[in-house]
Simulated assay, not measured.
Amino acid sequence: MWTAGEGGLRWIFAFTSEEELAAFARVKGVPVDGLPYLTVLDVAVAGLGVAGGVALDVAGAEPMLFPPMRGIVPDEVALDGPMTTTGGL
């Protein structure tokens, strides 16, 4: 799995197809044959151990960045996840 740090976040490079993964690998100079294609993104983001988002098809014609927010990543690792308050009224 490829990741990169930028702006205090860890970004997972994700791809919509094996062809998009292959395009990214070619840009990086990595052999395309036999590259694994991971499809368990929620597990991967939660397992980073730091705030992280998803960089989708970064070498493609329409790259996108998805920040680590609820609805994109699991709530427990989202920057806008459940807030905990202490104290009473």
Rank of each mutant, 00 (worst) to 15 (best):
M1H: 13
W2F: 14
W2D: 08
E6G: 05
E6Q: 15
E6F: 13
G7M: 04
G7E: 08
G7V: 03
G7Y: 07
G8R: 04
L9F: 08
R10V: 15
W11E: 03
I12P: 08
I12V: 08
I12M: 05
F15H: 13
F15A: 05
T16N: 14
E18C: 07
E18D: 09
E20C: 06
L21A: 12
L21Y: 07
A23S: 09
A25R: 01
A25Y: 06
V27F: 09
V27R: 03
K28R: 15
V30R: 06
V30M: 01
P31D: 04
G34M: 11
L35W: 08
Y37E: 01
Y37F: 15
Y37Q: 03
L38H: 14
T39H: 02
T39K: 07
D42M: 10
V43L: 14
V45Q: 02
A46Y: 08
A46T: 14
L48S: 01
L48Q: 03
L48W: 02
G49C: 09
V50R: 12
V50N: 11
A51V: 15
A51Q: 07
V54Y: 04
V54C: 02
A55C: 13
A55Y: 15
L56F: 10
L56A: 02
V58Y: 06
A59F: 05
E62T: 13
E62I: 07
P63D: 01
L65I: 04
F66L: 15
P67K: 07
P68Q: 05
P68V: 05
I72Y: 10
I72Q: 06
I72C: 05
P74D: 05
D75N: 03
D75S: 11
V77K: 02
A78R: 01
A78Y: 04
L79E: 14
L79D: 11
D80C: 08
G81L: 03
G81W: 00
G81C: 00
G81S: 05
P82W: 05
P82D: 14
M83Q: 13
M83C: 06
G88H: 14
L89Q: 14
